[in-house]
Amino acid sequence: MILAEITIVTTPAAVEVIAESLIAMGARGTAVQNPADILAVVEQPNVPYEYDDDLVGNLNEATLTAWFDEDHLGADHKQALEAKIKCELERIGTYIPIGSGEVSIQKVIQEDWENAWKTYYQPIIVSDQLVISPTWIDYNPQPGQHIIKLDPGGAFGTGSHASTLLTLELMEIYMIGDSKVLDLGCGSGILSIAAAKWGAYKIDALDIDPVAVETTIENVEINCCSDLINVQEGELYSLSAKQKYDFILMNIVADVIIDLLPIAADHLRPMGLLFCSGILNKKEDKVLTVARRSGFEVHERLERDEWVAFAFSHGS
């Protein structure tokens, strides 16, 4: 099936009214890109996201997309629809500023959207020893290769991001069996599951996001690691002083890592290692300054794309 996709560049003040009008004209749905919406997300307290400056864009401009059935796409129909929309914009413009009101129409093929997104995911060969595979793909492992079964969803950590891959790389280099591991900001649970595959005898997986906790529990069950991984909503500050680990994993973001570094050493066993990832290279120096001030030394540094990861040891 073919749909007519209409895009209108307008103002944040007018975008909802125009959307309402297009629905009344028979649109099957609308989508809006309004900078105010993403500002509300990135400015939430305690949810530090990384983002490029151009993500927010022009605060005075919003883009509306609407989808109509294909019968609006014939030459006459297309012109009629365009004329009707322009007339509607003119009418709305007498009450609310509508900005440029630029209209474009293009054809889109209606796919099997319920399944089309799966084409983006293929098994990720992290190393000779580790593969991350979606559950719907029956991956045949090589001898000695571990598989993490993971479906992408509402929690970060599908395995395709550089920061996750860097942490997995550090784990593969340094993690020995019979260790106790803390996974702070566990997201999808991918790192906890990898720790279990590499022989950790106990893993505490913590996240402040309840969706991440729920996703980790599901993924831990899929990978049959429930007896090794304890999943809880919480953060480093909620641990007692007695809880100490051979490895602490922090694949978070630089600003949160900087906050946690001063107390991380309190939970590290002698000879233990702290893996910090999710650090944009432009924030590397800030992290290093606080790490050194907190008594950590750089044991290993890895870089991929714009992301940096460290294995830190502690002198105490």
Partner: peptide, 11 residues
């Protein structure tokens, strides 16, 4: 987890 925003949309 290291969450870098790639895009957004309101429906």
């Amino acid at each position: 987890m290291a969450q870098k925003i790639a895009g957004y949309v309101k429906l």
